[in-house]
């Protein structure tokens, strides 16, 4: 027992060091500071309680992020009935579509060729831009988009979890993807003519 104590203490330190990146992910997904705090606290607590199932620091983040995904989903479920989650407002998608397409349905401008942004030298920078663009999505769009792309939940399950119709989900995801594309074009691909 006593020989385990230093391990727990060092695990606690390592976990604490992960807190900022966990909080950033939770906030990105939940779009609510209080829910994100709760999810992260529950994650760190669960990690400490499950310490004996965990061996070695190499995979610490993988393991903890796995726990975080469950805790974040719990928060989403718990708050599903709240109007903030189901609120339809906050959208100017029509503007975006007018910006992108002519009346006859053609593109206003020729889409630019994009090259893989994840090369060794630039990926950190690109991820920062990507996260900033995801943060700028309207909250509802951001949540469902992150559920797809970060939590990797299939669309039918998202509809169940959030209690929304699939047509609503398609619309939200469509807008999120259009918006994200536009944001990345402006802030990454437009500048990086590599």
């Amino acid at each position: 027992m006593s020989e385990n104590a230093p391990d727990i203490a060092s695990l606690a330190r390592h976990l604490e060091a992960l807190r900022p990146s966990l909080l950033r992910l939770a906030q990105l997904q939940l779009r609510n500071a209080a829910w994100a705090e709760d999810a992260v606290s529950e994650t760190l607590l669960a990690a400490l309680q499950g310490a004996q199932r965990y061996r070695g620091t190499a995979q610490l983040k993988t393991w903890v992020v796995g726990i975080l995904k469950h805790k974040v989903l719990d928060q989403l479920r718990h708050h599903t009935r709240e109007p903030t989650l189901a609120d339809a407002g906050d959208d100017d998608a029509d503007e975006l579509e007018t910006l992108l397409y002519r009346r006859d349905g053609h593109f206003q401008e020729m889409p630019e060729p994009w090259t893989d942004p994840c090369g060794e030298l630039q990926r950190e920078q690109f991820f920062a831009v990507l996260e900033a663009c995801m943060e700028q999505l309207p909250a509802r769009q951001g949540r469902v988009f992150l559920m797809r792309e970060w939590l990797e939940i299939d669309s039918a399950t998202i509809c169940q979890e959030l209690g929304i119709a699939s047509t609503n989900l398609w619309i939200l995801l469509h807008r999120a993807r259009l918006r994200l594309r536009e944001c990345l074009q402006q802030n990454w691909f437009g500048d990086h003519t590599s």
Binding site: H14, A17, L18, P20, S21, L25, K61, T62, V65, G66, F107, M110, P111, E112, P113, W114, T115, D116, P117, C118, R123, F126, F127, L130, E131, E149, W150, E152, R177, L180, R181, L184
Partner: peptide, 27 residues
């Protein structure tokens, strides 16, 4: 055709971002 290519680039980039969140060392 270009637009499709963009969606594929973004699909790959999101996958890498996801993996990065799992594997990145302590910031």
């Amino acid at each position: 055709h270009r637009f499709e290519k963009q969606t594929l680039v973004l699909r790959g980039a999101l996958r890498q971002w996801r993996e990065h969140q799992r594997e990145e060392g302590d910031p």
